[in-house]
Amino acid sequence: MNLEVHNIVGNPIIRHKYSCDPTALVYNNTVYLYTGHDEAPPGTEDYVMNDWLCFSSKDMTDWMEHPSPLRARDFSWASGDAYATKVIQRDGIFYWYVAVTHASVDGKAIGVAVSENPTGPFNDVRGSALITHDMLPFNSNEKANLDPGILIDDDGQAFIFWGNGTCYYAKLKDNMMELDSDIKKINLPGFEEGIHIHKRGEWYYLSYGFGMPEKVAYAMSKSISGPWEFRGILNELAGNCQTNRPCIIEFNGRSYFIYHNGALKNGGSHRRSVCIDYLYYNADGTMKRVLMTSEGVATIACPKE
């Protein structure tokens, strides 16, 4: 199969399609970028999202597009809507956590698909949702189950974070496909949605959409269970777009902040585009405010195989 490579200098990094809600995985000297796919035609101000996209790069500017490895309706229990996701690898298996609309339970739900390859195909081996609205502590918000984020801690314990309006978290079993604790809440100032969790050294970081229109803010803790200390704004309003969803990765000795805006022609809140800029840390572990640029990031030398 011939895969098309897009050499993009500057932001947005994907320009032949609208892309949104980025998540990324570093595996075998390669960055795998997974995005949502906005398909609303110009003039339609509503979310039209049916599948997710997958790209890979060894240098952060040459992005190879892979065939769409997953669609919302690949989950037999879902009625559609390909919202934000998270992909993580454990013991050579790739787990893709998604938010979709449930076909028979009111509200949104979180599912998980599995593959032996980072580019898929992915399959819903559970055959049912991991989290449904009726599992939550009382919440009248039908969008409460959005935007999953996953962390596997240093001791091997996995956690899932998610939410819209309220941030939730729970432990995952070793099989990565079942909850292993009660669902708990975290109080985060201005929390809207779009959570990303990562760990660096002794610090845990929760980054998320803050307010509406969404900036990105973050909190820090030395324990996965908190208390979480709010550390302020990480990223200002992205251009021409009401929402944002951060993703933070380390690759070849540098930190990257991945997000979306509405910068392409006819773009906007329902026709978004993924961008990448550099992320820097202060000596005390706090993160410096991200400088969004049109130049984006530079090509890095391809690592030796």
Rank of each mutant, 00 (worst) to 15 (best):
Q157C: 10
T30Q: 06
K185A: 07
A40E: 04
V87A: 08
L172G: 10
P22V: 02
S57F: 02
M176F: 15
Y280D: 13
A109C: 11
T243S: 14
Y18T: 02
D180P: 08
D124L: 03
M292E: 14
S225Q: 12
I258C: 05
D154N: 14
G120T: 05
D153K: 03
D51F: 09
L179C: 10
E192M: 10
N252D: 15
F122E: 02
S223H: 10
R254N: 15
D51A: 13
K143R: 14
D155K: 11
Y256N: 08
E193A: 02
P137F: 07
G92L: 01
K143A: 14
K108T: 13
M176I: 09
S79W: 09
T243N: 11
D51C: 11
E39H: 06
I248M: 10
F191K: 02
L130W: 06
P12R: 04
H133P: 01
R272A: 13
D62P: 04
W96A: 00
T299L: 14
D147Q: 00
K199M: 08
T35E: 02
V98T: 13
I150C: 00
K288T: 09
Y259T: 10
T119R: 07
P303E: 07
T132K: 00
E142S: 15
A82F: 03
L53D: 08
I14N: 09
V5Q: 10
S255P: 00
V274Y: 04
N266C: 10
Y95I: 01
V98D: 06
A263G: 12
M64I: 14
G253N: 15
N187T: 13
Y169V: 03
A129P: 03
V274H: 04
A219V: 07
S57A: 08
S56E: 10
G111K: 00
S273W: 02
S19A: 12
P69H: 13
V5I: 15
D59R: 09
V9P: 05
L33Q: 01
V274I: 11
P189A: 11
E39A: 09
L206V: 01
M176K: 10
A113E: 01
Y281W: 15
G267N: 09
N2K: 15
P118A: 04
S140Q: 13
K17S: 08
G10Q: 03
P41H: 10
K86G: 03
G267Y: 13
E236F: 08
G43H: 06
L234D: 07
Y95F: 09
P42W: 08
R73I: 11
T30M: 02
P41T: 09
D155Q: 10
R126P: 02
T286L: 04
K171L: 14
N141M: 01
G239Q: 14
Y32P: 06
S294G: 06
L179K: 12
M176V: 03
I160V: 14
Y47L: 06
V31Y: 06
A72G: 03
I224R: 01
A109L: 05
E142P: 06
P227S: 13
G111L: 06
Y27R: 10
A263S: 13
D154M: 11
I160T: 07
L70V: 07
P246W: 12
F122T: 01
W77V: 04
I160E: 11
I88Q: 06
E192A: 12
G43I: 01
N175S: 11
Y47N: 05
S79F: 02
T44M: 12
K215L: 13
S181D: 11
N50G: 09
K265E: 15
G226S: 06
N2E: 15
W162S: 03
